[in-house]
Amino acid sequence: MSRLKPQKEYEKTGAFHFFRWLSGSKDPYVGEIEMQPQKEAEIQETTILERMKESEMVRDKVYDVENNKVLKLFHKVYVVAAILFCVVLVGLLLYTVSYLPRIGNSANPDNNIVSERYIEQGLQETGALNIVSGMILTYRAFDTFGETNVLFIATCCVMILLMVDDVILKKQRIRNDRRFEPKNDGILQGTVFVLCPIIFIFGIYIILNGHLSPGGGFSGGAIIGAGLMLYTSAYGFEKTQRFFDEHIYKIAKITALCMYGIIGSYFYITGANGIENHIPLGTPGHILSSGIILPINICVGLEVACTMYAFYALFRRGGL
């Protein structure tokens, strides 16, 4: 910004006042009205303890806990009723199971055209050896997209509710970061140092083999999330933030969701309009085969791993 007038003269002109009023940068109360900053309300621990004691005393006097026979009877009946309820529920469920049709009966209601189509032509149309992942990621890819969105929205809601604002976070960082928990347990750290890479590799194996063997994005992502949680519980949040902080979390999660959206929408549009899509199916049984299943599996795996870890971190300390 270059001005003809120097700054001090410009501040005296009407245009300066107008633009300052327009942008709202001038606080009309500052310099005009005498004010004192408000003190924060302090509640001491002793007062909390006193209040708890008083409420307990009141409860004792009202209900007469020590001599009240009805209350004692209620507690006994409660235990018996809880056990009875559990036993009856288990019995009821087992009784219902006995009415289910036998496995493999040709007259069962699940033997209809849809399942026949899936079983007979699934391998040709999707190229996946694992029929289940071929079903949920190609025939019903739209459902799975909804499920992935549910995961995304769930973490967003938890973040809105539990995320600590930055100013408060700086004050309470140490308190929230497991102040009273045992730190630097050498035995646990040594074991996790050996086990964590194996767990991550196992999770990646399950994600990449989603179309060949049972598993896929959801279970593999859960395993990777469990590995992250294990690492965090051994080494603490500071060391985890070196490779997985809020920034990387945002990038990974949004990229995964958008990739799924793009791949999926191409697939839906071509499928719905009867256009031939140009995704090669490959030879069934190879790692690089079966069209859109492998990239979608990777996206879902990233999403699930991020969700698992984010829930854990948000509930533990209110921030990633």
Binding site: R178, R179, F180, E181, P182, L188, I199, I223, A226, M229, L230, S233, A234, R316
Partner: peptide, 18 residues
């Protein structure tokens, strides 16, 4: 096996902290 190990570690750590 992985999940049961994870559960025991996390529960014991959290409970000690609380």
């Amino acid at each position: 096996a992985l999940v049961s190990f994870l559960a025991v570690t996390v529960i014991s750590k959290v409970y000690i902290g609380v």
